[in-house]
């Protein structure tokens, strides 16, 4: 029972990342009609916002310690971070310790700007081109972005640990008398994803801006005829989708150390999530994200892999095939989307 619940928690955790990326993909597809293969790269850039802030906070000045030597036998250069020098060792160390959560403040404007620049600078030129062209150009962009990151940060994963207070495990089953130790940061990640998903839905549901966007998603032409500059709003939505992917990446860093390829690792699966959820359906993307995350988690158990070898690698695609055969528009897909 404990093992079963642990896999459910793992699935929810994995599903959080899928859901956040798929949500952004669906937002872009639903508003601009663009299949954005660079979305995984935005997730990766978000993670590297945390790496960047961590490095900035660790910028140091050097002093020579004559009593110690480096690997070449020269006097050792001891590095002291500027923040520790400016704010004192304790406060400085705390600021560095909380680098990942603080990165959210950096990632939001950075990702918004990157999203807007992508849409205005490149993607708007492909609105009237076939989906194949959009896929090619965004995929090419993803490769360029990932190579830039590799050039600056190298190919190896870079640790972005969570704050010390959020390390370790918590027994999430204690309330019901179960022994369910689960990493605190993964719980934080799931809660964070839930808040972001709720915020996006609330924004679209309860604000005038969101209402106009939803109207534009349903009938872009009519909204335009009402004198509303829907294109501008859709551009902003692109920026928001980029920010959602970026935030998902920022918070994912402590779970798996960021590397330049992490976006690609999530991209294909996230597209499957979008298709299973139903093209253009935001609730569908979220539902499919969590569903496939849980299924993937169970498929990786020893029982599953010994019963059906290799099931852990094909489960998502298998489910996608079954869903598409039984519900061709996906779990919550709407009629008319990508069907004309």
């Amino acid at each position: 029972m404990d093992g079963f619940l642990l896999q459910v928690l793992n699935g929810l955790d994995k599903g959080s990342a899928y859901a956040l990326i798929a949500l952004g993909l669906t937002l872009i597809f639903g508003t601009l009609g663009v299949v954005n293969f660079a979305h995984g790269a935005l997730f990766m850039i978000g993670a590297f916002c945390a790496v960047t802030l961590q490095r900035v906070l660790n910028l140091s000045f050097e002093t020579i310690d004559e009593t110690k030597t480096d690997f070449l036998g020269n006097p050792l250069k001891v590095k002291t971070p500027y923040v520790e020098s400016w704010f004192g060792p304790e406060v400085g160390a705390t600021i560095i310790d909380w680098a990942v959560p603080l990165s959210i403040l950096l990632a939001i404007p950075v990702m918004l700007l990157i999203g807007l620049a992508m849409e205005r600078g490149l993607i708007k030129h492909f609105y009237k081109r076939p989906h194949a062209d959009q896929i090619l150009v965004t995929f090419g962009l993803a490769i360029v972005l990932q190579e830039i990151i590799k050039l600056w940060f190298g190919a190896n994963p870079i640790q972005t640990p969570p704050p010390e207070a959020l390390m370790g495990v918590a027994n999430v089953g204690a309330i019901v008398g179960l022994d369910l130790p689960y990493p605190i940061w993964r719980i934080v990640y799931f809660c964070f994803a839930a808040i972001i998903i709720f915020a996006v839905f609330a924004f679209l549901q309860f604000t005038t801006f969101g209402m106009v966007v939803r109207a534009g998603m349903a009938d872009r032409e009519t909204v335009g005829l009402l004198g509303i500059n829907i294109d501008r709003r859709f551009t902003i939505m692109f920026g928001m989708a980029a920010a959602v992917a970026g935030l998902a990446g920022v918070m994912y860093g402590p779970i798996n150390p960021p590397n330049y390829h992490m976006g690609m690792d999530f991209l294909v699966l996230s597209f499957v999530v979008v298709v299973v959820g139903g093209m253009g359906s935001l609730p569908g993307a979220v539902l499919a994200g969590f569903l496939l995350g849980i299924l993937e988690s169970f498929a990786s158990t020893t029982w599953a892999t010994t019963t059906i070898p290799g099931i852990n690698q094909i489960i998502i695609y298998l489910v996608a095939i079954i869903v598409l055969l039984t519900r061709p528009r996906g779990l919550m897909g709407r009629k008319g989307v990508m069907e004309e």
Partner: peptide
């Protein structure tokens, strides 16, 4: 990339040593 599904069963397996026959990014993760 994410090994949580493989790690979770270790908790209740009765094992007291985990051997990671992984290299590179696999090992880091």
């Amino acid at each position: 990339t994410d090994f949580s599904s493989y790690i979770a069963p270790v908790l209740n397996s009765g094992a007291d040593v985990l051997v990671l026959n992984h290299y590179g990014g696999n090992m880091v993760n």
